[in-house]
Simulated assay, not measured.
Amino acid sequence: MKSILIQAAWFCILLASFVTGSHAAIFDVKKFGAKADGKSDDSKAFLGAWGAACKAAGANTITADGKYMAGPIKFQGPCKGAITIEAHKMILTALPDPYAFKGHAWVTFSSVHGLTINGGTFDGNGATAWKLPDCGKKGNICRLPANLQFNVVTGLKIIGLTNKNSKQFHMTMGGCKDVTIQNYTVNTPGDAPNTDGVHIGESSKVSILGASIKTGDDCVSLGDGVQDVHVEKVTCGPGHGLAIGSLGKYPNEKPVLGVTVKNCTLTGTTNGARIKTWPGSPVGSASNMHFEDIIMNNVTNPILIDQQYCPWNQCKAGVPSKVKLSGIGFKNIKGTSSSKVAMTIHCSPAVPCQGVLMNDINLVYKGKDGPAVSSCTNVKPSITGKVVPTACSTHK
């Protein structure tokens, strides 16, 4: 009787598979010609494995164990089913020549629904790019690739991925939805220019849950059009902090709505919790943004709202920003500042900040010219609990 029941169960599984067309398969990049010697360009093998997995029905898996080198790779969807890339033992290194990359990214995923990346190390081999004359400095535009780019990807899970030495941004996202990033690691020198750990724009329902980011620019940066973004348990440093913006550089930017950053630790960074907009900007808005339970260790600008953000003087200096900031909370933020002005809230005279709440803040400056102070313009924050330094002690 038991054997009959087992046979019946297997028959039902096979029948369901036949009806739904779900035939999960495994595609090993080595079977598509990858040499895995860490020296040969294995781009075609990765694209071959992707093409086969993408065309096959069902939820399929691509495996890549070993050391590989590759030039530009574009993984294009839509695919017939979800795809998982198992890369726990993979080290993929980019070609060192910056001029071998004509696009904006080294590895790109586009128009995919249901993508999981488990593990893997992506090494952008960026040292040669960082040394290009004035690259990324003084407003110079460099056509350098991000390590990873996700365009219009939904149902994305990135788990245990290591991203390092990118020629420019380590990871960028645009038009993505339902994204989870867990146990994410970025390890790049602090003097590597424009190497944001992850930049997210025009995406919704994104969660970063656990990350260790060492880089030469923002650890996490959120651009226009982000909605319902949750960033938690990120350690940052070296780097430029956790940033919303910059906003207002371009016309027709979409609003920012709903960002929570909490349980993070920043060490030796130039900024901490930061919101930045360009002066002379078109009309825009960003609202419902909260920074909570954050530890600052020797951070230069622990709390910073800068609506006069103007790197390399590439802006309309003196013309107010028209990006309206509202519903901003700073709660339970503690630690040390490496500068006397531990709290700077410089809002726009054209659209003063609204609904700024400061709650339980203790930022200590130990310099000889201490104690710490705050500086504010065009804002009247609400204060609850103990706030050190006194919020907006130099209010204008």
Score class of each variant (00 low, 15 high):
Met1Trp: 00
Ile6Asp: 06
Ser17Trp: 01
Gly21His: 08
Ser22Cys: 11
Ala24Asn: 10
Ile26Cys: 10
Lys35Leu: 06
Asp37Ala: 13
Gly38Phe: 02
Lys39Ile: 07
Lys39Met: 03
Lys39Pro: 07
Ser40Pro: 05
Ala45Thr: 10
Leu47Thr: 14
Ala49Phe: 04
Lys55Gln: 11
Ala59Arg: 10
Asn60Glu: 00
Ala64Gln: 06
Gly71Lys: 03
Gly71Phe: 02
Pro72Lys: 05
Phe75Thr: 04
Phe75Pro: 06
Phe75Gly: 11
Gly77Ala: 03
Ala82Lys: 15
Ile83Cys: 12
Thr84Ser: 15
Met90Leu: 08
Ala94Thr: 11
Phe109Trp: 05
Ser111Asn: 14
Leu115Asp: 05
Ile117Val: 15
Gly120Cys: 13
Thr121Phe: 01
Asp123Ala: 09
Gly124Leu: 05
Asn125Tyr: 03
Gly126Leu: 03
Gly126Arg: 03
Thr128Ile: 11
Ala129Val: 09
Leu132Ile: 06
Pro133Gly: 13
Asp134Phe: 09
Lys137Thr: 10
Gly139Ser: 09
Cys142Asp: 01
Arg143Ser: 11
Ala146Trp: 01
Ala146Gln: 07
Asn151Val: 12
Ile159Glu: 05
Leu161Phe: 07
Leu161Val: 15
Leu161Ile: 11
Asn163Gln: 12
Lys164Tyr: 00
Lys164Asn: 08
Ser166Trp: 03
Gln168Leu: 06
His170Phe: 01
Gly175Cys: 13
Cys176Ile: 04
Val179Thr: 15
Thr180Val: 13
Tyr184Thr: 12
Thr185His: 04
Gly190Asp: 02
Ala192Lys: 07
Ile200Leu: 09
Glu202Trp: 03
Ser203Asn: 07
Ser204Cys: 07
Ser204Phe: 01
Gly210Lys: 06
Ile213Thr: 11
Thr215Ser: 11
Thr215Phe: 01
Asp217Ala: 15
Asp218Gly: 15
Cys219Met: 06
Val220Ala: 12
Asp224Tyr: 10
Lys233Ser: 11
Val234Met: 05
Val234Arg: 03
Thr235Met: 03
Cys236Gln: 07
Gly237Pro: 04
Ile244Asp: 02
Gly245Ala: 06
Gly248Thr: 14
Tyr250Gly: 13
Glu253Trp: 02
Lys254Tyr: 00
Thr260Trp: 02
Cys264Ile: 03
Thr265Ala: 10
Gly268Glu: 01
Asn271Gln: 12
Asn271Lys: 15
Asn271Leu: 05
Ala273Val: 07
Arg274Val: 11
Ser281Asn: 10
Ala286Ser: 12
Glu292Thr: 15
Ile294Leu: 09
Ile295Gly: 14
Leu304Val: 12
Trp312Phe: 13
Trp312Arg: 12
Trp312Gly: 14
Asn313Val: 04
Asn313Ile: 02
Gly318Asp: 00
Pro320Val: 08
Val323Ala: 04
Gly335Leu: 06
Ser339Trp: 00
Lys340Arg: 15
Met343Asp: 00
Ile345Gln: 02
Ser348Pro: 09
Pro349Leu: 02
Ala350Phe: 05
Pro352Asn: 10
Gly355His: 05
Leu357Arg: 09
Leu357Thr: 12
Met358Ala: 15
Asp360Asn: 15
Asp360His: 14
Pro371Glu: 00
Ser374Met: 07
Ser375Trp: 00
Ser375Arg: 15
Thr377Arg: 14
Thr377Cys: 10
Thr377Trp: 00
Val379His: 10
Lys380Thr: 09
Lys380Asp: 00
Thr384Ala: 14
Val388Ile: 14
Thr390Val: 13
Ala391Lys: 09
Ala391His: 08
Ala391Tyr: 02
Cys392Asp: 00
Thr394Trp: 01
His395Ile: 09
